[in-house]
Amino acid sequence: MSKIEDALKKSRSDNSTELVKTSSNVQSYINSDISLMEYDEQVAIGVLSNLKIIHYGMKDQKIFSEFRSLRTKLIQKSENTNLCIMIYSSLPGGGSSYVAANLAAAIALDEKKTSLLVNCDFTCKPDYENLLGQYHGGLIDFLSSDLPVEDIIYRSGIKRLRIIPAGSTNDTFSEYFTLRKFHELLQQIKGRYSDRYIILDAPSAMNPADIRLLSEFVDFGVLIVPYGKDSLDNIDKASKLISKEKMIGVVINNIPEIFAGK
């Protein structure tokens, strides 16, 4: 992780002035059009590579196309433009954060679409939170205080991709998803832009209560199955946590290159 952080620091130092500007001008972006977001500054490609986030011109085109096709499939499933998708894995460390971030990035590749990645998994800090600039509170802080919505929506350095981090960790996470405020937040951010896709990075199926609660707010759920790591029973149980209509499908993650595409 130190290498990633080093890379970030380097990238920040390159664009430090603009990052500061970004954070100070949050307000101006909130009500802006997608076109305005086009002007998001681009994070260095090396940083994205280290954070395992897809981008144009990346070395491994196979992964790039895999995420694009996944994105396309998901968009095709919905007629609703403002789609809210929950990504959860059957096991902790199953790769839900990785898939959620890349899915959001893949959606953001489309110039007409924006994506918002919401980290609902308070157990660990995902790689993508390293993209955030100056940190001033996350989801928990918003739900537990009077922080304005604008303050918790961060630029990612990737065009048309915004991130809401988890925020200060607290033990009793589960209670937050029952709050009316959380529901309102989702409604609000959904309606902010047309063609906005909200990706919830949910905790693993080891927290079934969270998954059930979160599934109430989303249009679809996607289950991440880690390659060769999880037992069939557990996967079956995880897939049944959300209703059949919302269970849109599973994604098998982390297939070694030599077995991929077989």
Binding site: K73, L74, V222, S239, I248, V250, I252, N253, I255, G261
Partner: peptide
């Protein structure tokens, strides 16, 4: 359940 995608490492 449909498999939406198989992602390489």
């Amino acid at each position: 359940i449909p498999v939406l995608g198989e992602l390489s490492t």
